[in-house]
Each structure stands twice: as structure tokens, then as C-alpha cells.
């Protein structure tokens, strides 16, 4: 078996694909959350930031060039992540044809046990999220700017949208709590001495990211930003 083949076909290689694509997506999420914080500087600052994303690196790149490069990269990461996850999930299913009659989880955290279904919820949310706030198809104010869409989205009367958003963000948090450390372990960068610390970092980062994402609907619902 050649080395390149062994990499993409083996379980360890697939995990490495999952880890690297996952870390790319975490990087995106962090900058996405950071950009969202613009909302606390007012609607104009938020819209201006959104506009800037379309003009960054122009005129070396065409209008929205950077944005599309990022989108292509993210799509590739998402496809790689889902491909490796699906492939490993199917393999796990095949590896235990007869289930236990009596089974209880021993150590794995809630986050670790819900990676697969959590991932499915996140994908469904991302699809909705793009149709809602990026393309505007599912937004009550499709012709408005980014901030207008945002404030229309989290209007108190549409509490169920806010609730779904909160659920999705918390799911992402759980996903990252296990996923971040797991990626580091998969890439061989964890050991017994570092394990506790790295798990702490993963938890802290997940909580911070959740807090940043949840602060936006919280600010809109409470009228903190108008």
C-alpha cells in the first residue's frame, strides 16, 4: 500500500481530514463571531463591516473576490468534514452488527456522544442560516441591509427563530467542546500531561464562542441595539 493511499483510506487518515477541516471551520467561526461584535457599535458599523467584507483586497481581487474565495474554501472544508464523518460513522455501524442488550456510557462526555447527530443539526441550521441572513429568502425583511435583516429576524414575535438559533449555537458549542480537543489528539499533539489543559482550553473556547454568538440575538431581543 502506498503512503498517500494509506492516508485517505485509513481510519487515522480520515480522522486527520476531519481534524484539519474542523480546525478550518473553527477559524471561520471565530472570525464570524468577532465580526458579529460590530453590532454593539451600532447598525451602521455592522453594515459597514459587511460591506468591507465585499471590498477587501480589491482591486487585486474583483468585488466580493475575497468573500468567494473564502466561501469556496469553507465549502471544501465542510465537504471534507462530512465525507470523513460519514465514512467513519458507517464503518462504526458495520463494526458492531449485534448491539448490546445492556449498554451504558462509561466515560465519554455528552458532547462526545452527540457529535454525529449534533453535526446533522448544525448542517440543517447552516442551510437555514444562509437562506435567512445571506440570501434573504427566508427573512421577513429580504430587501433590507444586514442589520435590518438581523433585527427583523430576532423580533420578539419571532421567538421561535431565536429559540432555534440559540439551540443551534449551543449545539455548535457542544460539538466544539469535544471536537477541538479531539482534533488536537488526532493530529498527535495531545498527551497525558497536556490532556486536561487542552480539554479546558476547548471548553473555554466553546463557551466564549457561544457567548459571542448568543450576545447578538440577546442584544436585539432586549433592545440593547436598535
Amino acid at each position: 500500500m502506498t503512503r498517500s493511499k494509506s492516508l485517505t483510506r485509513s481510519t487515522v487518515g480520515k480522522k486527520a481530514v476531519m481534524a484539519v477541516t474542523g480546525l478550518m471551520l473553527v477559524g471561520f467561526l471565530f472570525f464570524h463571531a468577532l465580526g458579529n461584535m460590530k453590532v454593539f457599535f451600532g447598525g451602521d458599523a455592522f453594515d459597514h463591516y459587511s460591506h468591507w467584507l465585499r471590498t477587501v483586497l480589491t482591486p487585486i481581487l474583483p468585488h466580493e473576490g475575497f468573500l468567494w474565495l473564502a466561501r469556496v474554501g469553507l465549502l471544501a472544508a465542510v465537504i471534507g468534514h462530512i465525507w470523513s464523518a460519514t465514512s467513519l460513522a458507517l464503518r462504526a455501524k458495520r463494526a458492531r452488527p449485534v448491539k448490546y442488550a445492556h449498554r451504558k456510557p462509561v466515560q465519554g462526555s455528552y458532547a462526545a456522544r452527540t457529535m454525529r447527530w449534533g453535526g446533522v443539526i448544525v448542517v440543517l441550521f447552516v442551510i437555514y442560516h444562509i437562506l435567512d441572513l445571506t440570501t434573504g429568502h427566508l427573512n421577513p425583511n429580504p430587501d433590507g441591509g444586514p442589520f435590518a435583516r438581523l433585527s427583523a429576524d430576532f423580533a420578539p414575535s419571532r421567538w421561535y427563530v431565536t429559540a432555534f438559533y440559540v439551540l443551534a449555537v449551543v449545539t455548535v458549542g457542544f460539538h466544539l467542546r469535544h471536537g477541538l480537543w479531539s482534533a488536537i489528539q488526532t493530529l498527535g499533539r495531545s498527551n497525558e500531561r497536556r490532556e486536561k489543559f487542552l480539554k479546558g482550553v476547548a471548553l473555554g473556547f466553546s463557551v466564549l464562542l457561544c457567548a459571542m454568538f448568543l450576545s447578538v440575538p440577546f442584544a436585539v431581543v432586549t433592545g440593547l441595539v436598535k
Binding site: T11, V12, K14, L88, A92, R94, R96, V106, G108, Q185
Partner: peptide
């Protein structure tokens, strides 16, 4: 390389770092 390849060929699943094993 050979041990992981053989492990995979024998229809064992892949690790997801849940830590059930070590427990």
C-alpha cells in the same frame, strides 16, 4: 502503517477519542 492498515482491514471501527476504552 502496517498495523493500522491491518486494523482497518479487519473491520474494526475508527477512533473518535471518546475515551471509553481507557476507562
Amino acid at each position: 502503517l502496517n498495523m493500522v492498515h491491518t486494523h482497518d482491514e479487519l473491520d474494526f471501527g475508527g477512533c473518535t477519542n471518546t475515551g471509553e476504552c481507557t476507562a
